[in-house]
Design a binder for these strands. Structure first.
Length: 481
RNA sequence: CGGGGCGUAACUCAGUUUGGUAGAGUGCUUGCUUUGGGAGCAAGAUGCCGCAGGUUCAAGUCCUGUCGCCCCGACCA
């Protein structure tokens, strides 16, 4: 390990020592969350919430650009409504929280706290969709949902979590399929362009489908420890929900027909993905697009005449340039501040002391590689733009490299076991016959489950890795969060 | 839901074996000196020892119960 990369912050457990502890250390020390007295329910603190706000702002813009409108559904679903689609209720019933009393009165029809809102949207669509002229409806909502998880982890699996859920309804199957794919594409684009996180786009196997869906698509990312994380999903429902909820419209030929639906979502889990994709042993590393603070200015010998004034001048210039900038003029030592903002993952640090002012320059250090450079103050704005872009590109490249380094092609079960043992966790590419029994067996024998059937297929062989019968598709396998 | 760990100051933890005045480091407050990688000295403030019962002259410590959290597995965004 080079001098430039050595661990400067002792407060964080190193990821090689204990990845899980490293993760929780970061989440706490970077002040993203605080635990509460209810298991699995966390306080998202200002710094953590600001990341979510940036994610929201960018994604919401992308949704609006593609014609979606925001709505807000109630948080309660009567049990009778949840029951209407058989697969859906079977999938979610084990993890819903129930409201059984209203004040002192026991409720006749108990209410579940929404674990997802398909049923609510369906009830509503049944009321407002009557003619082909009413279609499509492209709705989205930003809300929290509750799923009573047994084991919980901040951002990755909490009992209440924030998300957006898009719910659309279309005249034709083709249109709905197109929507499903389009939204998956938007998620992938967002992950790559805003989170600097490469993802694999693909379809889930039938056993992994959303409860009630005809097809589920997902983007899968590989974390630093070689485990896979589902970063977003998009579902095609066909007309299954429409039939269950009796949603019909009159088409151009004056015939009553069923519409076709989709739903898609990403959650605050994305914050967990950012941590585990880019973070290092000095703390969080944030992609510039969603960093609450993109550049921090740290004055050195700030008590000396003119230093703070100059620092404020830089702050104003960068603000005017549209940079989210913070000047830390607290009386902590510069060294303390360096460590603090590294822990918090601020992409760019700008140091300014008497020596710099004398030479009309400042020092810039990029968080991901700690590269230091001297920049003439005349070029401040231009340099910041370049550095932030360099951080984004550097993060993306490193994440992609990690994924490629940890992606292995295997032709037999023994090869899978062998690779996992010798190289550690990662993505395993292997052929599959399409039989669920084989999928289960791979998981049982090797420990890796199917992540997705990627859109970008490769013909590794013509035989299933498990049974040897003709293969239908190449599948990405991995251990998952 | 199974396995493991833990609840004592804001944080990390010692003290529980063998009952006897509630502790340390960090942080916090104030002052002075410092400032280019978590500064130094001095003075201060901070505790229903998770909760409820019990045993005892006496419980952080022993007994019974209970609540909660963290980690690892199976399931899930």
């Amino acid at each position: 390990m080079s001098k430039d990369n050595k661990k400067m912050v002792d407060a964080i457990t190193s990821m090689e020592e204990d990845f899980a502890k490293w993760y929780t250390d970061i989440v706490k020390k970077a002040e993203l969350i605080e635990y509460t007295s209810v298991k699995g329910c966390m306080v998202i603190r200002p710094y953590g919430y600001a990341i979510w706000e940036n994610i929201q702002r960018i994604l919401d813009g992308m949704f609006k650009e593609t014609g979606h409108e925001n709505v807000c559904m109630p948080m309660f679903i009567p049990e009778s409504l949840l029951q209407k689609e058989k697969d859906h209720v079977e999938g979610f019933a084990p993890e819903v929280a129930w409201v059984t009393y209203g004040g002192n009165e026991k409720l006749e029809d108990r209410l579940c706290v929404r674990p997802t809102s398909e049923t609510l949207f369906c009830e509503h669509y049944a009321n407002i969709v009557h003619s082909y002229r009413d279609l499509p409806k492209l709705y989205n909502q930003w809300v929290s949902v509750v799923r009573w998880e047994k084991t919980t982890r901040p951002f990755l699996r909490s009992r209440e979590f924030l998300w957006q859920e898009g719910h659309t309804i279309h005249a034709t199957a083709e249109e709905a399929v197109e929507e499903t794919e389009k939204m998956l594409g938007i998620y992938a684009k967002f992950c790559e362009e805003s989170l600097a996180m490469p993802v694999v786009k693909g379809r889930k196997t039938d056993s992994d489908k959303f409860a009630g869906a005809e097809a589920t698509y997902a983007i899968e990312a590989l974390m630093h420890d070689g485990k896979a994380l589902q970063a977003g999903t998009s579902h095609y429902f066909g007309d299954g929900f429409a039939k269950a909820f009796d949603i019909m419209y009159t088409d151009k030929e004056n015939k009553k027909v069923y519409p076709h639906q989709t739903s898609w979502g990403v959650t605050t889990r994305l914050i967990g993905a950012i941590i585990m994709t880019h973070g290092d042993n000095n703390g969080l590393v944030l992609p510039p697009a969603v960093a609450p603070v993109q550049a921090v200015i740290i004055p050195v010998q700030q008590f000396k005449e003119g230093v703070l004034d100059k620092a404020r001048e830089l702050e104003e210039r960068l603000k005017a340039h549209g940079i989210r900038v913070k000047l830390d003029d607290s009386d902590n030592s510069p060294g303390w501040k360096f460590a603090e903002y590294e822990m918090k993952g601020v992409p760019l640090r700008i140091e300014l002391g008497p020596k710099d002012i004398e030479q009309d320059q400042c020092v810039m250090v990029t968080r991901h590689n700690r590269e230091k450079s001297f920049v003439s103050l005349a070029e401040l704005e231009k340099a910041v733009d370049e550095k932030l872009k360099a951080v984004h590109d550097g993060l993306y490249r490193a994440a992609l490299e990690n994924r490629e380094k940890r992606t292995y092609s295997c032709l037999t079960m023994d090869e899978i076991t062998d690779v996992l043992e010798k190289k550690g966790d990662g993505f395993i590419k292997a052929m599959w016959c399409g039989d669920e029994a084989c999928e289960d067996k791979v998981k049982e024998v090797t420990g890796v489950g199917s992540r997705c059937i990627p859109f970008e297929q490769e013909q590794l062989s013509d035989k299933c890795v498990c049974c040897g019968k003709p293969a239908k598709a190449m599948v990405y396998w991995g251990k998952a969060y």
